[in-house]
């Protein structure tokens, strides 16, 4: 492969931002995967190898499996956040929706509901909480970031109030729901398989349905979208409901794995999910998104958190270290992206 700086490809490359192939090994990998999220994948792999080179224990398949398992919840949330960022919206209540739907389903199961029915109810509840967010935005005409800042506290408060601040225990852990979603299939955690399915479905929705196009059109130019006959309000409701439903789904996966309900679970997930989406390559200015990138961003964050444990970093410094790694990842990605865009502009594309 020749390194092509001025002669950018015209037809055979996905024209989404960041998809232009650069030179060197990065370009090769990108072409191999054919996706714009390759750079975050490369970063993740490199980070794993670096940690593994210093602490070979980290490369143990069981360790890597745990890392993956831990990233699933934020990854599902990040996929939804990517949709919202693509239309210049944001939802700060995702961690709280995750927690509230988990707690509610756990309480229903404890009270004798069939766990399958309770799990579906949890996902529906998540979607309804998303609808509540959308309704608040619509009725009071306030930005989603403000509305969801309020509902973040309200939903979290409901989790605590309903559970009276106690762990919800005494769930029928021998039921197939827990055995299946908390277990493994072919050695892979089922929740990771669910994540893969979600990635495929959401990528499909984003890239090939009118809804996916509308989301990106609104993010690209809201006025032009409205003038083309796209209803901003309707798309916003749909996107926030999708986000809520995904948070509910993540909650069910968490419930199946943990086997109990902690009313504080998912605190801070909203910021991790936003960070993951941004690390994955979804720009905050809107107009574009990558679901796979957002999920890989969550995996990267999970690698950082787990990896730091190996480095004898004082526990009080781990938060600082996590932040530093996020900053480095986002910073490098942004610099590379700007160089690529400058190159693409020079080529007249």
């Amino acid at each position: 492969m020749t390194s092509s700086t001025t002669d950018a490809p015209r037809q055979d490359v996905d024209p989404a931002p960041g998809a232009t192939s650069g030179g060197g090994p990065l370009g090769l990998i990108k072409r191999a995967f054919g996706m714009e999220s390759a750079s975050v994948l490369v970063a993740t792999v490199v980070l794993i190898l670096v940690i593994g080179a210093i602490h070979p224990d980290f490369l143990d398949p069981r360790q890597l499996r745990d890392v993956l398992q831990q990233s699933v919840y934020v990854a599902v949330l990040a996929a939804g956040v990517a949709f919202l960022l693509a239309m210049r919206e944001i939802d700060l209540s995702v961690g709280a929706i995750f927690g509230l739907s988990l707690i509610c389903s756990a309480m229903l199961m404890r009270d004798g509901w069939n766990p399958w029915v309770a799990a579906v109810a949890g996902i529906v509840l998540g979607a309804l909480l998303g609808l509540a967010n959308a309704a608040i935005v619509q009725v009071f005409r306030i930005p989603a970031i403000v509305a969801t800042l309020a509902t973040l506290s309200m939903f979290r408060g409901l989790s605590l109030a309903l559970s009276e601040g106690q762990q919800v225990v005494g769930l029928p852990l021998d039921h197939t729901f827990f055995e299946f979603f908390g277990g493994r299939l072919f050695g892979i955690p089922v929740s990771v398989l669910v994540l893969v399915v979600v990635a495929i479905v959401l990528t499909f929705v984003l890239r090939t349905t009118p809804f996916g196009y509308r989301v990106r059109s609104i993010g690209s130019n809201p006025d032009a979208a409205a003038f083309s006959g796209i209803s901003l309000a309707r798309v916003r409701i749909q996107a926030l409901m999708l986000m809520g439903g995904l948070a509910g789904l993540a909650g069910m996966l968490g419930l199946a794995y943990f086997g109990s309900g902690d009313p504080n679970i998912g605190s801070g997930f909203e910021l991790l999910a936003i960070a993951a989406a941004v690390i994955g390559g979804t720009p905050l200015r809107g107009g574009a998104a990558t679901v796979v990138g957002a999920m890989l961003g969550a995996v990267l964050l999970s690698v950082v958190t787990s990896g730091l444990v190996y480095f004898d970093i004082p526990v009080n410094w781990s938060s600082f270290a996590t932040g530093a790694v996020i900053l480095i990842a986002v910073g490098i990605d942004s610099l590379l992206r700007r160089r690529r865009e400058a190159r693409a502009a020079a080529a007249g594309l």
Partner: peptide, 20 residues
Amino acid sequence: LGLMLDKPIWDNAGQVRSVA
């Protein structure tokens, strides 16, 4: 009001019929 400036021509062209 007319265009998504950062999107390719074909994407803009399908904005009303296929998307909206």
